Simulated assay, not measured.
Amino acid sequence: MTTPHRITVVIGNTGERSRTKVLAQAIADGLSAALPVTVQTVEIWKLAPQIGPALTPQGLPDEAAAALRAIASADLLVAVTPVYKGSYTGLFKHLFDLVPPDALVGRPVLLAANGGSDRHALVVDHQLRPLFGFFRALTVPSAVYAAEADFDGYTLNSTALQARIDEAVQQAQALLAARAPAQDVLREAA
Score class of each variant (00 low, 15 high):
Ala177Asp: 12
Thr56His: 11
Thr139Ala: 09
Thr20Val: 08
Phe92His: 07
Leu35Phe: 09
Asn157Asp: 02
Asp125Lys: 03
Arg179Cys: 13
Glu188Met: 14
Leu128Pro: 08
Ile44Phe: 03
Leu161Trp: 13
Phe92Trp: 13
Ala168Tyr: 04
Leu175Lys: 11
Val37Met: 09
Leu47Lys: 04
Arg6Thr: 15
His5Lys: 14
Ile7Lys: 07
Arg187Val: 15
Ser32Met: 00
Ala26Asn: 09
Ala26Cys: 05
Ala28Asp: 07
Gly15Ala: 14
Val42Met: 05
Val9His: 06
Leu98Asp: 05
Phe151Leu: 07
Ile27Gln: 04
Arg107Cys: 06
Ala168Asn: 06
Ala121Thr: 01
His120Cys: 14
Val109Phe: 00
Val80Ile: 01
Gly30His: 09
Thr8Met: 05
Ile44Glu: 08
Arg6Cys: 07
Ile7Thr: 06
Phe134Pro: 04
Ile7Ser: 07
Ala48Gln: 09
Ala66Tyr: 02
Asp29Thr: 12
Gln170Leu: 13
Gln173Ala: 11
Asp62Arg: 15
Ala168Thr: 04
Leu95Asp: 00
Arg107Ser: 02
Ala54Thr: 00
Val42Asp: 10
Leu111Gly: 03
Asp150Trp: 07
Pro141Glu: 01
Ala149Tyr: 01
Ala163Asp: 12
Ala180Val: 12
Val140Ala: 09
Leu104Ala: 10
Gln171Ile: 10
Arg164Ser: 15
Val109Ala: 06
Pro49Glu: 10
Val99Thr: 03
Asn157Ile: 05
Gly106Ser: 11
Met1Cys: 05
Phe134Asp: 07
Ala48Gly: 06
Thr155Gln: 15
Asp102Gly: 08
Ala26Asp: 14
Ala180Asn: 09
Ala149His: 10
Ile7Tyr: 10
Tyr88Gln: 11
Leu175Thr: 13
Ser87Gln: 13
Ala180Ser: 11
Glu43His: 04
Ala66Ile: 00
Phe92Ala: 02
Ala182Tyr: 13
Ala103Arg: 07
Ala160Lys: 13
Ile71Asp: 00
Ser158Arg: 09
Ala190Asp: 15
Gln162Ser: 10
Ile44Val: 13
Arg179Thr: 14
Val9Leu: 10
Phe134Val: 14
Gly59Thr: 13
Tyr84Cys: 09
Ser117Arg: 08
Val39Lys: 06
Ala34Gln: 12
Arg187Trp: 03
Arg179Trp: 02
Val22Arg: 04
Gln58Asn: 12
Pro57His: 05
Phe135Asn: 09
Asn114Glu: 13
Phe151Glu: 06
Tyr145Glu: 00
Pro61Ala: 05
Asp125Phe: 04
Val80Ala: 12
Glu188Val: 14
Ser87Lys: 06
Ala160Glu: 15
Asp102Lys: 10
Pro108Thr: 02
Pro130Arg: 02
Gln40Glu: 13
Ile71Gln: 01
Val169Leu: 11
Gly115Glu: 08
Arg17Leu: 11
Gln25Ala: 15
Gly133Trp: 07
Leu104Pro: 10
Leu60Gly: 14
Glu43Val: 03
Val123Pro: 02
Leu104Arg: 10
Asp29Glu: 15
Ala66Lys: 15
Ala34Asp: 12
Leu156Val: 14
Ala70Asp: 09
Ala33Ile: 01
Val83Tyr: 03
Gly30Arg: 06
Val80Glu: 07
Val10Asp: 04
Pro53Trp: 05
Ser117Asp: 03
Asp125Ala: 03
Ala33His: 08
Thr41Leu: 02
Gln58Tyr: 11
